[in-house]
Measured scan of single mutants.
Amino acid sequence: KKTCTFCKKEIWNTKDSVVAQTGSGGSFHEFCTSVCLSLYEAQQQ
């Protein structure tokens, strides 16, 4: 099972999830929504 990098909820429907390359290492992270992605990126600043 996949979990959201930001909120840690399980991702049930992968077509609704967002995968983004974030951080200095350029690793890929999966998020349940684009909202979680935005919040995660804001936290990394």
Results as ranks from 00 to 15, higher is better:
residue 26 G to S: 12
residue 10 E to I: 08
residue 3 T to V: 05
residue 16 D to W: 02
residue 35 V to L: 13
residue 12 W to G: 15
residue 27 S to R: 11
residue 36 C to Q: 01
residue 13 N to G: 14
residue 30 E to Y: 05
residue 10 E to Y: 03
residue 41 E to G: 08
residue 27 S to F: 13
residue 8 K to H: 15
residue 9 K to R: 04
residue 23 G to E: 10
residue 37 L to C: 10
residue 43 Q to R: 14
residue 4 C to R: 00
residue 38 S to D: 14
residue 24 S to G: 14
residue 34 S to I: 02
residue 23 G to Q: 11
residue 24 S to L: 04
residue 11 I to F: 10
residue 44 Q to V: 11
residue 22 T to V: 08
residue 25 G to F: 04
residue 45 Q to P: 11
residue 9 K to I: 14
residue 21 Q to Y: 04
residue 42 A to L: 05
residue 43 Q to G: 14
residue 6 F to A: 13
residue 30 E to Q: 07
residue 39 L to K: 12
residue 5 T to L: 08
residue 4 C to A: 00
residue 5 T to V: 05
residue 2 K to T: 07
residue 36 C to R: 01
residue 43 Q to P: 14
residue 5 T to P: 03
residue 9 K to N: 04
residue 15 K to P: 12
residue 33 T to W: 00
residue 19 V to L: 06
residue 4 C to E: 01
residue 33 T to V: 01
residue 21 Q to A: 14
residue 18 V to R: 11
residue 41 E to T: 06
residue 45 Q to G: 07
residue 44 Q to M: 09
residue 41 E to D: 09
residue 7 C to T: 00
residue 39 L to Q: 15
residue 18 V to G: 11
residue 29 H to I: 08
residue 16 D to K: 03
residue 27 S to A: 12
residue 32 C to N: 01
residue 2 K to S: 03
residue 37 L to F: 07
residue 24 S to H: 14
residue 6 F to R: 11
residue 22 T to K: 06
residue 6 F to D: 02
residue 3 T to M: 07
residue 14 T to G: 10
residue 16 D to H: 09
residue 38 S to N: 08
residue 26 G to E: 12
residue 45 Q to C: 10
residue 20 A to G: 12
residue 22 T to Y: 04
residue 38 S to E: 13
residue 23 G to N: 04
residue 27 S to Q: 10
residue 3 T to S: 07
residue 44 Q to I: 07
residue 30 E to V: 05
residue 28 F to K: 15
residue 11 I to W: 05
residue 36 C to G: 02
residue 44 Q to G: 14
residue 45 Q to W: 14
residue 20 A to D: 06
residue 16 D to Q: 05
residue 31 F to S: 02
residue 8 K to Y: 05
residue 38 S to Y: 02
residue 28 F to D: 15
residue 41 E to Q: 10
residue 22 T to A: 12
residue 32 C to F: 00
residue 10 E to C: 02
residue 34 S to M: 03
residue 20 A to K: 13
residue 11 I to P: 04
residue 1 K to V: 06
residue 9 K to Y: 01
residue 32 C to E: 01
residue 3 T to G: 07
residue 8 K to I: 03
residue 5 T to A: 06
residue 7 C to Y: 00
residue 31 F to A: 03
residue 35 V to G: 10
residue 35 V to P: 09
residue 7 C to D: 02
residue 13 N to L: 05
residue 33 T to M: 03
residue 25 G to Q: 11
residue 2 K to G: 05
residue 6 F to Q: 15
residue 5 T to H: 05
residue 4 C to V: 00
residue 37 L to T: 06
residue 24 S to I: 07
residue 18 V to T: 15
residue 13 N to R: 08
residue 44 Q to C: 08
residue 42 A to C: 05
residue 30 E to W: 05
residue 33 T to L: 00
residue 26 G to D: 12
residue 16 D to P: 15
residue 37 L to N: 04
residue 9 K to D: 05
residue 33 T to D: 11
residue 41 E to H: 04
residue 42 A to P: 12
residue 35 V to E: 14
residue 30 E to I: 11
residue 6 F to P: 01
residue 14 T to M: 03
residue 21 Q to S: 07
residue 2 K to M: 09
residue 10 E to P: 09
residue 11 I to A: 06
residue 43 Q to S: 09
residue 7 C to E: 01
residue 4 C to G: 00
residue 20 A to Q: 15
residue 26 G to T: 13
residue 3 T to W: 02
residue 21 Q to N: 09
residue 13 N to V: 10
residue 39 L to C: 06
residue 24 S to D: 11
residue 30 E to A: 11
residue 30 E to C: 09
residue 12 W to A: 11
residue 36 C to W: 00
residue 7 C to S: 00
residue 7 C to K: 00
residue 4 C to F: 01
residue 32 C to R: 00
residue 36 C to A: 01
residue 39 L to P: 04
residue 41 E to R: 10
residue 27 S to L: 11
residue 36 C to I: 00
residue 42 A to F: 02
residue 16 D to G: 05
residue 3 T to K: 04
residue 34 S to Y: 05
residue 27 S to E: 14
residue 40 Y to F: 14
residue 11 I to E: 03
residue 9 K to Q: 04
residue 12 W to V: 07
residue 12 W to L: 01
residue 1 K to A: 01
residue 1 K to N: 14
residue 35 V to D: 11
residue 9 K to P: 01
residue 43 Q to C: 05
residue 13 N to P: 03
residue 32 C to Y: 00
residue 31 F to C: 08
residue 24 S to E: 11
residue 19 V to K: 15
residue 11 I to K: 05
residue 12 W to S: 03
residue 24 S to Q: 13
residue 45 Q to D: 15
residue 24 S to C: 06
residue 36 C to N: 02
residue 44 Q to A: 14
residue 43 Q to L: 05
residue 19 V to N: 08
residue 10 E to K: 06
residue 37 L to P: 03
residue 43 Q to Y: 02
residue 29 H to Q: 14
residue 28 F to I: 08
residue 42 A to G: 13
residue 37 L to Q: 13
residue 32 C to L: 00
residue 22 T to L: 07
residue 7 C to A: 00
residue 40 Y to Q: 10
residue 43 Q to I: 02
residue 10 E to Q: 04
residue 10 E to S: 09
residue 8 K to V: 04
residue 27 S to I: 09
residue 40 Y to I: 03
residue 1 K to I: 13
residue 7 C to H: 02
residue 10 E to W: 07
residue 10 E to H: 02
residue 17 S to T: 01
residue 12 W to C: 00
residue 3 T to Q: 04
residue 23 G to R: 09
residue 43 Q to V: 05
residue 41 E to F: 01
residue 30 E to S: 08
residue 26 G to V: 07
residue 41 E to P: 04
residue 9 K to H: 02
residue 13 N to W: 04
residue 33 T to K: 08
residue 39 L to R: 13
residue 32 C to G: 01
residue 9 K to W: 01
residue 39 L to T: 12
residue 5 T to F: 05
residue 16 D to Y: 03
residue 30 E to R: 08
residue 41 E to L: 01
residue 2 K to H: 01
residue 20 A to T: 12
residue 6 F to K: 12
residue 21 Q to P: 12
residue 18 V to H: 07
residue 23 G to I: 03
residue 6 F to S: 09
residue 32 C to W: 00
residue 28 F to R: 15
residue 11 I to L: 09
residue 44 Q to T: 08
residue 23 G to F: 05
residue 45 Q to L: 09
residue 20 A to E: 14
residue 10 E to R: 04
residue 10 E to G: 05
residue 6 F to I: 12
residue 14 T to A: 10
residue 45 Q to E: 15
residue 45 Q to A: 14
residue 28 F to C: 06
residue 39 L to G: 15
residue 40 Y to P: 03
residue 10 E to D: 15
residue 41 E to A: 05
residue 19 V to Q: 15
residue 24 S to M: 08
residue 38 S to H: 12
residue 41 E to I: 01
residue 14 T to L: 15
residue 40 Y to S: 10
residue 23 G to W: 04
residue 29 H to F: 06
residue 39 L to D: 13
residue 27 S to P: 13
residue 6 F to L: 09
residue 41 E to C: 02
residue 5 T to D: 06
residue 42 A to N: 10
residue 44 Q to W: 06
residue 40 Y to L: 06
residue 32 C to D: 05
residue 27 S to C: 12
residue 12 W to Q: 15
residue 21 Q to C: 03
residue 39 L to W: 04
residue 31 F to I: 02
residue 32 C to T: 01
residue 40 Y to R: 07
residue 34 S to L: 02
residue 43 Q to K: 15
residue 6 F to H: 04
residue 45 Q to V: 10
residue 21 Q to H: 08
residue 25 G to A: 11
residue 1 K to W: 02
residue 18 V to I: 05
residue 5 T to N: 14
residue 16 D to E: 15
residue 29 H to R: 11
residue 19 V to T: 14
residue 40 Y to H: 11
residue 44 Q to N: 09
residue 5 T to M: 10
residue 22 T to G: 11
residue 25 G to E: 13
residue 12 W to R: 14
residue 8 K to R: 09
residue 28 F to T: 15
residue 26 G to C: 07
residue 11 I to H: 08
residue 29 H to D: 15
residue 18 V to C: 02
residue 34 S to C: 02
residue 4 C to Q: 00
residue 44 Q to S: 10
residue 33 T to S: 14
residue 12 W to K: 05
residue 3 T to C: 03
residue 38 S to W: 02
residue 42 A to Y: 03
residue 7 C to G: 01
residue 40 Y to A: 12
residue 14 T to N: 06
residue 36 C to L: 00
residue 19 V to H: 04
residue 4 C to W: 00
residue 24 S to P: 14
residue 22 T to N: 08
residue 43 Q to N: 07
residue 35 V to N: 12
residue 44 Q to F: 06
residue 34 S to G: 11
residue 27 S to V: 13
residue 30 E to K: 07
residue 38 S to A: 10
residue 41 E to K: 13
residue 24 S to N: 07
residue 17 S to G: 13
residue 41 E to N: 10
residue 3 T to D: 14
residue 21 Q to T: 10
residue 14 T to D: 15
residue 33 T to N: 07
residue 6 F to G: 09
residue 7 C to W: 00
residue 43 Q to T: 08
residue 2 K to E: 08
residue 7 C to Q: 00
residue 45 Q to T: 13
residue 43 Q to W: 03
residue 40 Y to W: 14
residue 11 I to D: 15
residue 1 K to D: 15
residue 38 S to I: 02
residue 36 C to S: 01
residue 43 Q to M: 05
residue 14 T to W: 03
residue 2 K to I: 12
residue 29 H to K: 08
residue 24 S to A: 15
residue 1 K to L: 06
residue 38 S to G: 12
residue 21 Q to E: 15
residue 20 A to W: 08
residue 13 N to M: 10
residue 38 S to V: 03
residue 35 V to H: 07
residue 31 F to L: 04
residue 30 E to M: 05
residue 30 E to L: 05
residue 11 I to G: 09
residue 37 L to Y: 08
residue 27 S to N: 06
residue 10 E to T: 07
residue 5 T to I: 09
residue 6 F to V: 07
residue 22 T to P: 14
residue 9 K to V: 09
residue 21 Q to W: 02
residue 25 G to I: 06
residue 13 N to K: 15
residue 4 C to D: 01
residue 37 L to R: 12
residue 11 I to R: 04
residue 23 G to L: 05
residue 45 Q to N: 05
residue 28 F to W: 04
residue 29 H to T: 12
residue 44 Q to R: 12
residue 5 T to W: 04
residue 3 T to R: 04
residue 16 D to S: 13
residue 15 K to G: 11
residue 25 G to K: 13
residue 27 S to G: 12
residue 28 F to V: 13
residue 30 E to F: 03
residue 22 T to E: 13
residue 1 K to Y: 02
residue 35 V to Q: 12
residue 20 A to Y: 09
